[in-house]
């Protein structure tokens, strides 16, 4: 179903439909996250992907255009490039461990260590929260700073101009 949704994004022209499809895509991927025991991630994805980003994209659509203009150019080069990259990545997975195997490198270093230490050191039932805020506190501080910076950037791009234009209009009104 995820693949069907993603493929329909490629062929659809109406941008409104595309934005809705991307919301659907987010919800479906949230389901997949639950299936893979990542409840926190699924929660975030459902709230962010299906909620906030759909609203923001619709807001952008209201400010821009609603449909994509067709371009007739042949698209063989990108397709070739994509297939090549995909083939290389699949070649890479041949050396990857099996899905869900408990003895992979990812499962044998810090992961079990955290699970062992959290009850003793942090005593917080939700391991994700404990790692997020305590063991990886630096990371989270950085992420918060990134969100902060992105917010500042959007404010600079969007509201600064609105004010300037208002001033421009006032200036024009005054001069004419």
């Amino acid at each position: 179903m995820l693949i069907v949704t993603a493929l329909s994004v490629v062929v659809t022209r109406s941008l409104f439909a595309i934005v809705t499809l991307s919301g659907v895509f987010s919800l479906l991927s949230a389901l997949l996250f639950v299936r893979m025991h990542a409840v926190d991630v699924a929660f975030t994805e459902a709230a962010v992907g299906a909620g906030i980003s759909t609203v923001l994209m619709l807001g952008t659509l209201a400010l821009t255009s609603r449909s994509e203009r067709s371009d007739k150019k042949p698209q063989i080069a990108p397709l070739f490039l994509v297939v090549l990259t995909g083939a290389l990545l699949i070649y890479g997975t041949l050396d990857m461990p099996d899905f869900g195997a408990p003895d992979t490198p990812a499962q044998t270093h810090v992961g079990p260590d955290y699970i062992e230490r959290i009850p003793k050191e942090i005593d917080v039932p939700n391991a994700v929260t404990a790692i997020l805020a305590s063991y990886r506190g630096y990371d989270t501080l950085g992420e918060t700073a990134v969100v902060f910076t992105a917010g500042i950037g959007v404010l600079l791009l969007m509201s600064g101009l609105a004010r300037r234009r208002k001033e421009d209009e006032e200036d024009e009104g005054g001069s004419s």
């Binding site: 906030i52 609203v55 923001l56 807001g59 952008t60 209201a62 400010l63 942090i122 917080v124 929260t129 404990a130 805020a133 305590s134 506190g137 989270t140 918060t144 969100v147 902060f148 992105a150 917010g151 959007v154 404010l155 791009l157 969007m158 509201s159 609105a162």
Partner: peptide, 28 residues
């Protein structure tokens, strides 16, 4: 500590998301 830090994160994320929404909606 976890509680305080999470409050900080929550406050920032709320602020940023609402600010972004205001910025977009003010122009629509």
């Amino acid at each position: 500590g976890i509680l305080i830090v999470e409050v900080g994160v929550g406050v920032t994320v709320t602020g940023v998301m609402v600010a972004i929404y205001y910025a977009f909606a003010a122009r629509a």
